[in-house]
Design a protein around this nucleic acid. Structure first.
Length: 728
RNA sequence: GCGGAUGUGGCGGAAUUGGUAGACGCGCCAGACUUAGGAUCUGGUGCCGCAAGGCGUGGGGGUUCGAGUCCCUUCAUCCGCACCA
């Protein structure tokens, strides 16, 4: 509050009386609450907000300094939505009032043929002429009551009303009509625009619909102006030269924008400005479980509690529900006031209050006196690696940055950006299966025959399905209403349809890991999840390959035990071949961990175990190192093996094996020999053989003659330890 | 519409720096062991072709001795945002 970052204001919210709470837009589905399906209404409420918009520019710039996925940064950039332009004042004809509009294209001022206000704009009532009053009021009421859903669905429909009033274009004194329409949003810019139908597609559609004039002011380079009446669409591009535009005529668009802003500023009728899409974050919740605000009210004005009265703890309430009057649950508490008897705030803070700064508390979790100490923060600084889903892009990840920036400005944290590197792991999706019920019957038709009937597609529990083939008995027993189900089969089987969707109970596509862990063990499950593909990929859960990983685990075990369960590890000294396999693995695993490539790491473990099996290697020295390497991938089996290898302490305390180049060194390299870029045969040569000798050896090889024939060799490329390419 | 990402065998995927495309696994085929196998092991498996050979990383073009990788262009899919002035 002291930094004007937290403030109280009347805010339009989605109020659900039944739940006694405000809902986010995405919690409202078709005018009903997502949970419970209760009606939701628009309501003006006094709510706390955080002025995140004050940090918009820095939040945007900071993105250049962090190592995040480009897609995620782009999401945040879009969300912040910076656009440069100008604020321009239009006089309202016959009134003293000025209408401030925001435009990204001040250069097109000469093409403005009308103005549009948002229906909620404060001047609408005042400037509407008596003869237009009825129509305008009707439109305003209609627009206000339109649900989110209707607005979305009817994007293409043009609606609006003329107010009867006129604005004066400040650059040429033209009188242009002022309209209202809900394609102009009250919450963006100034809620008022100048319409340039020739160069904005929405204005164009509006002008066409209401038969308003269209004036071209930008022409594509090298093209002559054309009669806008013949156009199919507006020319929105910023490329081109100005025409019909007073003193900026002939200028390039970019140059014209600058010149117009200078002109407006000189005349004090406008100014260059930057607009952001980002809105302040509403910080009040009408729930019990949230941090209470350390705020009390005196004569209706909010004041912060003294620091020595902190922390403020949640009071006891009889029910965690809103009061009958619709007040938040904290209003139920009996003594929810200060020592002096002033009432305390009854709203609580949202989830992001805690999630925005928990990483700071993690730096100093035992601190009884403060959030975290300066020393602890200077030691830990920031989060080196943040692994999380991209669904937090426009929520948590932006709030946390804002939170941290404020604390940085206060000198309380030493890094401006909280999360140095961020990786989005992909989500495991569900693979749903469907059966096709013939309408009005209890008969189900197999996938490829479904077109012959009128069917309804129904989700079927994926546990009844194997390789898209339905276990019809399990299906019949699954639910009473399907007990007498009949099936139309193809090739004696019932084939199900399928689709990849979000895992969800209602879609019956949830795979319970417990069952898989029961069958294969947690290590197999873990390894398989990693083996499935790159960390960041979203992918459907598919258990078809899990057997392979399970076999690998069993194979690993057999390096230590024979088929009768006898310990077969020996103390023999490993030979060069065995050491080579081990050290190749050490190198690869180390590398793969660093680049978060766990699927290729698992693959290397498989290669290693396969080779050690072929070599019949049961030597302690090798297996001990392998156990350490695999301990973070398959911790349970690793711990067991480590113990059997004679260690009492956990394998987690063992140090990562050291890679030694000497064991993987080769004396020879098998050169692929290419002719005109096509690999034809391989040739084994000493690694340190000089280039010209390699070339000679390749040309001398009898197989080369076959490809070269009697043609002239033009060039031979030798890249040591890589390739030989003979060009003819 | 704007922005981002991704396109490689039947499937999941590998190829980290422009240098042997398809590692590893699934599946499939053949075989061994077995009363049996949904256990285990061996061999094979990009496509066309008997073979020699040819073709092949969504399509088209380019740079290069050499392109999955770089450039241009085009198509498709997925994700995010969107009557944003």
């Amino acid at each position: 509050m002291n930094y004007r970052l937290a403030y109280l204001s009347d805010t339009w919210v989605n109020w659900c009386p039944e739940l006694g709470t405000v809902l986010a837009n995405d919690e409202v589905v078709n005018g009903l609450s997502e949970r419970g399906g209760h009606p939701v209404e628009r309501k003006l409420m006094k709510q706390w907000s955080l002025r995140i918009t004050a940090y918009a520019q820095r939040l945007l710039e900071g993105l250049d300094k962090v190592d995040w996925f480009e897609s995620l940064k782009e999401m945040q950039r879009n969300w912040i939505g910076r656009s440069e332009g100008a604020g321009v004042y239009f006089k309202v004809d016959g009134y003293k009032d000025n209408l401030l509009v925001f435009t990204t294209r001040p250069d097109t001022l000469w093409g403005a043929t009308f103005m549009v206000l948002a229906p909620e704009h404060e001047l609408v009532e005042k400037i509407t002429t008596p003869d237009r009053k009825d129509a305008v009021e009707k439109y305003v009421t209609w627009a206000k009551n339109r649900s989110e859903r209707e607005r979305m669905a009817e994007v293409k429909t043009v609606t609006g009303e003329f107010t009867g009033a006129y604005g004066i274009n400040p650059v040429n004194g033209e009188k242009i009509p002022i309209w209202i329409a809900d394609y102009v949003l009250a919450g963006y810019g100034t809620g008022a625009i100048m319409a340039v139908p020739a160069h904005d597609s929405r204005d164009f559609a509006f002008a066409r619909h209401f038969d308003l004039p269209i004036i071209q002011v930008v022409a594509k380079d090298g093209e002559k102006p054309a009669d806008p009446a013949t156009w199919d669409e507006s020319y929105d591009s910023k490329e081109g030269k100005m025409i019909n535009s007073g003193f900026i005529t002939g200028m390039d668009v970019k140059e014209a924008i600058k010149a117009t802003i200078d002109f407006l500023e000189g005349k004090k009728i406008g100014h260059g400005t930057v607009n952001f899409r980002l809105r302040d974050a509403i910080f009040s919740r009408q729930r019990y479980w949230g941090e209470p605000f350390p705020i009390y009210y005196k004569n209706g004005m909010p004041y912060p509690l003294d620091e020595d009265e902190l922390p403020l703890k949640l009071p006891k309430v009889d029910k965690y529900l809103p009061t009958e009057k619709g007040e938040p649950p904290l209003a139920r508490a009996e003594n929810w006031k200060t020592k002096e008897g002033y009432p305390l705030e009854t709203n609580t803070m949202p989830g992001f209050a805690g999630s925005s700064g928990y990483y700071l508390r993690y730096m100093d979790p035992g601190n009884k006196d403060e959030y975290f100490s300066k020393e602890a923060n200077e030691y830990w600084r920031d989060v080196d690696l943040y692994l999380g889903g991209d669904e937090h892009a426009t929520g948590h990840l932006i709030y946390a940055r804002f939170w941290n920036m404020f604390l940085f400005d206060m000198g309380l944290v030493c890094e401006e950006e909280p999360f140095k590197k961020l990786i989005n792991q992909g989500k495991i999706q569900g693979r749903s299966n469907f059966v096709y019920r013939i309408e009005g019957t209890n008969k189900f038709v197999s996938f490829n025959l479904r077109k012959e009937h009128k069917t309804t597609r129904i989700h079927v529990d994926v546990n009844f399905v194997d390789n898209d083939i339905l276990d019809t008995d399990a299906f019949k027993n699954g639910r009473p209403e399907y007990k007498d189900a009949e099936f139309i089969l193809e090739d004696g089987k019932y084939i199900c349809g399928w689709e990849v969707e979000k895992m969800s109970k209602s879609k019956h596509n949830v795979v319970n890991p417990d069952e898989l862990m029961e069958q294969y063990g947690a290590d197999t499950f873990r390894l398989y999840e990693m083996f499935l593909g790159p960390l960041e990929n979203h992918k459907p859960w598919d258990t078809n390959g899990i057997e392979g990983v399970y076999r690998f685990i069993k194979k690993l075990w057999r390096l230590f035990f024979d088929e009768n369960g006898n310990w077969i590890v020996t103390d023999e000294i490993p030979n060069n071949q065995e050491l080579k396999v081990l050290h190749q693995t050490i190198k690869k695993i180390r590398n793969d961990i660093e680049r978060f490539s766990f699927n290729t790491a698992v693959s290397q473990f498989m290669i290693c175990v396969n080779e050690l099996t072929d070599l019949k290697c049961h030597k302690k020295q090798v297996l001990e190192n392998l156990t350490i390497l695999i301990s973070s991938y398959a911790p349970h089996i690793a711990e067991e093996l480590w113990n059997r290898l004679g260690h009492n302490a956990s394998v987690t305390y063992a140090s990562f094996p050291e890679f030694k180049e000497e064991y993987v060194k080769e004396n020879t390299f098998e050169y692929p020999v290419s002719f005109n870029g096509k690999m034809r045969f391989k040739l084994e040569l000493p690694v340190d053989m000089p280039k010209d000798e390699v070339e000679k050896a390749a040309l001398a090889d009898e197989r080369s003659g076959k490809y070269i024939g009697d043609k002239q060799v033009r060039k031979v490329i030798v890249v040591p330890k890589r390739i030989i390419n003979i060009v003819y």
